[in-house]
Design a protein around this nucleic acid. Structure first.
Lengths: 110, 110
DNA sequence: CCTATACTTAACTTATTCGTTAATTAACTA
DNA sequence: TAGTTAATTAACGAATAAGTTAAGTATAGG
């Protein structure tokens, strides 16, 4: 729906059309209500129609917010990568050792 | 919990300890069950204890999966950025024009 | 054998998400 | 004015997430 709106203002039923067989109109109304509350879109009046458009300010806020987390996510990716590299390396080493070595006891649990 | 496990195998109660006042032990059991089902950890038996460890294969799969979506997310970020640039530009232009111009009618809705 | 410890299972609660159908409001139009 | 179209509201429901308490199982160890 946001993608649709990025091409220009349009009405509730226009936005609903692509989802005709997936959800009802009231469902769309509700969906739009959360987008509106979230400040991502605005609705206005034109006779029976409620033309919707993207809200630049809200989108900017959202983008800024995501931008913050983007780093966090990427760091997480990198940490996972690091972790996997060490694990995979450890496993390769494991395989070159004798396959039936002593089982390592875990640390004492008292 | 995954972070904890990345430092080495440990038991259910060890994993639960940092969350003592946030959730009960059964809650932890359940949480671990979903991590196990998701293939991110494995559990074994040692007397009453159930030592858990990270599952490298599962984590690798998860990382690969995320890697795929990473691009999608970043593209989305970029598209948002692009969109915002054009919108902000458009708004600046708007402000330099006479503030009380003709209201543009929306496209006919028949 | 008895009991404490580690953990699990069962049964239930509570809140939220995401939808539904039916009725309602508002405005256009023949 | 009567009917149609656009959208919303009301009332409800199913599914899921994420916990809770209380009871049960398995094992170690005095």
């Amino acid at each position: 729906m946001l993608a649709q709106l990025s091409k220009g203002e349009c009405t509730v039923s226009d936005l609903a059309k692509p989802f005709r067989d997936e959800m009802s109109l009231p469902a769309v109304t509700k969906h739009l209500k959360v987008l509106e509350k979230a400040g991502l879109i605005t609705k206005s009046k034109d006779a029976q129609y409620r033309p919707c458009k993207l809200n630049a300010d809200g989108l900017k806020e959202a983008a800024d917010w995501m931008q913050e987390y983007r780093m966090f996510w990427e760091e997480s990716f990198d940490r996972l990568d690091d972790y996997l590299k060490t694990v995979v390396a450890a496993e390769k080493k494991e395989k070159t050792k004798k396959p039936k070595g002593k089982k390592k006891k875990h640390a004492s649990r008292k």
